[in-house]
Design a protein around this nucleic acid. Structure first.
Lengths: 242, 242
DNA sequence: CGTAAATGGAGATATTCCCTCCGTTTATGA
DNA sequence: TCATAAACGGAGGGAATATCTCCATTTACG
């Protein structure tokens, strides 16, 4: 009687071994899974991406399964725990963040570089609550993402130093202020997103005016403040929670 | 700035019957409760005040009971639901907020008045997470507190207008920006409180520099930025959650 | 002291989350 | 085409958490 080991072995490598997973192309993954399984894996990732972005890492694998019109068993078979799913989804985003930092260093005008960094970073982190939690927090990301995150700090330090040396950025600013500012922008976003999804930019403009040395003039704010009605709805929709 | 000044006597007024409670003197309430019951009521309120301040309105009545070394039954007998407890505790604080607004209007220098308002308000709201949730949100406060909150808005509008007329505050600022800024300060506080409880002031200083027209110089920041180690611990202690 | 008031906290009820198990369906290569 | 391993769905067990009640006991006080 014949046995069919190729299936088993390849599957095990692709699914379980954290060392190798990064070297594998998605094509390999698709080949080693049955067609339906491979398609469903993609649907899981898409479902997770959108739910994480909208509601943060707190969403359950059950939520993700239902959102993808799949049974929970299917999701748990593919991603035995949330860490693996988070890693699969956010590694790329963190890499992109590093790229953003590198690019910010290439600006001739260091203040412009700093601006680029902050705005791009905050844009990514306000649009995607999951990413924000990955960057600012410590849950579900043991392993590779934690390592990648360590590369971001020194880049920001360098960007900040350049901007200060050239006299654009106030001297008492510190690279470690960046994550706190990201947390603040995130809070503005969470508070107002139901009525004005880009309102956070208004407050970033204010903060940037507070960071600029000898600013020539006030930055015009692109977003209008909330009106009375919007504020009331923001209050109602806002959930504080733990 | 005292958040809960002549505390117990006022709170004891509000016992059970919403219709007639305001006619009762605190002495009557004390007389109508047995001595031990009356003492325990105070202990419940103290326990709730400290837990709400620390962890927000999400704490359970069971938590509050245990923290007060009382049985949960005792707490539920005195405050059948959380709304009543929240109302008993925070009505006073909201009244004080209104007082702060009125006082801010008395400054000759309207920018100084605005400064007083924002700093005092944020100080209260960062020290007391429960108060922050009462002000920014809508849960547990149906009734009198909701009514009181409506008085705050117009005061802020007046303060903002004065400060803009006198040329200190940028013209595109809006009274409705204040709660969003409070949410941001709260986020900074939640993010860093475990390692640097006053760090939020650093970011308020930056924001204020961004709000001031023709600022003479940058405001010196009273708080140092987090160092590497503190940032790591802030990340670890930070819980995103819903 | 007698009695009504007050107490404590076990536990009923409900919800939510995590994850497994297994009967059924499906893809696939022989 | 068909046998078979892979994959699927989702009911449901178990753990955690919250809310609120009940009542046997204890306590204050006229």
């Amino acid at each position: 009687m014949e046995i069919f080991p190729p299936f088993m072995t390849r599957l095990l490598i692709v699914e379980k071994d954290p060392e190798c997973s990064f070297d594998l192309e998605s094509r390999n993954v698709e080949r080693s899974l049955r067609r339906d399984a491979s398609e469903n894996r993609v649907r899981i990732l898409e479902s997770a991406r959108s739910l994480f972005a909208e509601r943060g890492l707190g969403v359950t694998l059950d939520d993700i399964a239902h959102n993808a019109n799949l049974g929970v068993g299917t999701v748990y078979r593919r991603f035995p725990n949330k860490d693996l799913l988070v890693q699969a989804l956010f590694e790329e985003a963190v890499l992109e963040l590093i790229e953003v930092g590198r690019h910010a260093l290439e600006f001739e005008d260091a203040w412009e570089g700093f601006l680029f960094l902050l705005k791009t970073m905050l844009d990514m982190e306000t649009k995607d609550r999951g990413l924000r939690e990955v960057i600012l927090g410590n849950d579900y990301i043991e392993g590779r993402i934690t390592e990648l995150k360590k590369e971001v700090g020194p880049l920001i330090e360098e960007i900040v130093r350049r901007a200060q040396d050239q006299g654009g950025l106030r001297g008492d600013f510190h690279a470690n202020d960046v994550p706190v500012i990201a947390a603040m922008a995130g809070a503005a976003q969470e508070y107002s997103k139901s009525v004005s999804p880009n309102l956070w930019k208004r407050y970033v403009a204010i903060v940037l005016d507070g960071l600029r040395v000898d600013r020539p003039s006030l930055t015009p704010m692109s977003e209008e403040a909330l009106d009375q009605d919007q504020l009331i709805h923001a209050m109602i929709n806002w959930k504080a929670r733990k």
